[in-house]
C-alpha cells in the first residue's frame, strides 16, 4: 500500500515555519502527525536530522519545497514534547522515533497475551518479536530496544516481569 500524503504536503507554505502563533500550532500538529505516520508506514525507528532534510517527508521535490534544518529541529522538539521522540546523543543529531509510545506497545502486547490466555507464561524476547505465534500482530518484528521499553512499561504497571534466561532475556506476564 502506498503512503497517502495529507493535503498539506502539497501546500507550499506548509514548508515555511509560520509566524502566526495559532497557525504555527496547527502547522506543527500536522507535521508531527505526518512525520509519525510516515515513519510508521516505512517502519522507521531512528531519524537522523542531517538525513531528514533529504527524506521525501521533509522534502517535496514535486513542488520544490523543503523544511529548513531549523524547522525540522522545531518539529523534532515538538515530537519529543509529545513523548514520541528521544535524542540519542547530546548534539541532538540522531533520534529514536516512537510512532507508538512504549506504553502503547506494551498495551498491544498485553492484549495479545490475554486474548490467547497466556498470562502466567514465560516468553523469550525473541519469541515475542519474531516467533511464529505473533506473526501478523502489529508488534511482530518490533526492534529489540523498543520491545524492552514496552515490557518495562508493563513491568511498572505490575503486568509483567522481565527475567534473565540462559540465552538472553525473557518475560513473564501476569
Amino acid at each position: 500500500m502506498s503512503f497517502e500524503w495529507p493535503w498539506q504536503y502539497n501546500f507550499p507554505p506548509f514548508f515555511t515555519l509560520q509566524p502566526n502563533v495559532d497557525t504555527r500550532q496547527k502547522q506543527l500538529a500536522a507535521w508531527c502527525s505526518l512525520a509519525l505516520s510516515y515513519c510508521r508506514h516505512h517502519k522507521l525507528y531512528t531519524l537522523d536530522i542531517m538525513e531528514a532534510q533529504e527524506t521525501p517527508v521533509f522534502n517535496n521535490k514535486k513542488i520544490e519545497r523543503k523544511l529548513s534544518m531549523e524547522a525540522i529541529q522545531v518539529v523534532f522538539e515538538e515530537l519529543r514534547k509529545k513523548g514520541n521522540l528521544e535524542w540519542l546523543d547530546k548534539n541532538k543529531s540522531r533520534s529514536l522515533v516512537m510512532w507508538r509510545r512504549p506504553e502503547e506497545w506494551g498495551k498491544l502486547i498485553y492484549q495479545w497475551v490475554s486474548r490467547n490466555g497466556m498470562n502466567n507464561s514465560v516468553f523469550t524476547l525473541y519469541e515475542l518479536a519474531n516467533g511464529d505465534d505473533t506473526e501478523g500482530e502489529e508488534f511482530h518484528g518490533l526492534e529489540d530496544w523498543m520491545l524492552q521499553r514496552s515490557l518495562q512499561a508493563l513491568q511498572t504497571d505490575g503486568k509483567a516481569e522481565i527475567i534473565t534466561l540462559d540465552d538472553g532475556k525473557g518475560v513473564k506476564f501476569f
Binding site: 502539497n10 501546500f11 507550499p12 507554505p13 506548509f14 515555511t16 502566526n20 495559532d22 520544490e64 523543503k66
Partner: peptide, 28 residues
C-alpha cells in the same frame, strides 16, 4: 496572517507568496 487566514511561503522564487488554505483546497 495575524487573523490566521493566510500562510506565508518564503521559499518561492522571487518574493514571498501569501497562501489561503480555503482557496487552495478549491483549486486542488
Amino acid at each position: 496572517l495575524k487573523e490566521g487566514l493566510a500562510w506565508v511561503d518564503s521559499q518561492a522564487a522571487g518574493e514571498s507568496q501569501y497562501w489561503f488554505p480555503a482557496l487552495f483546497s478549491e483549486l486542488t
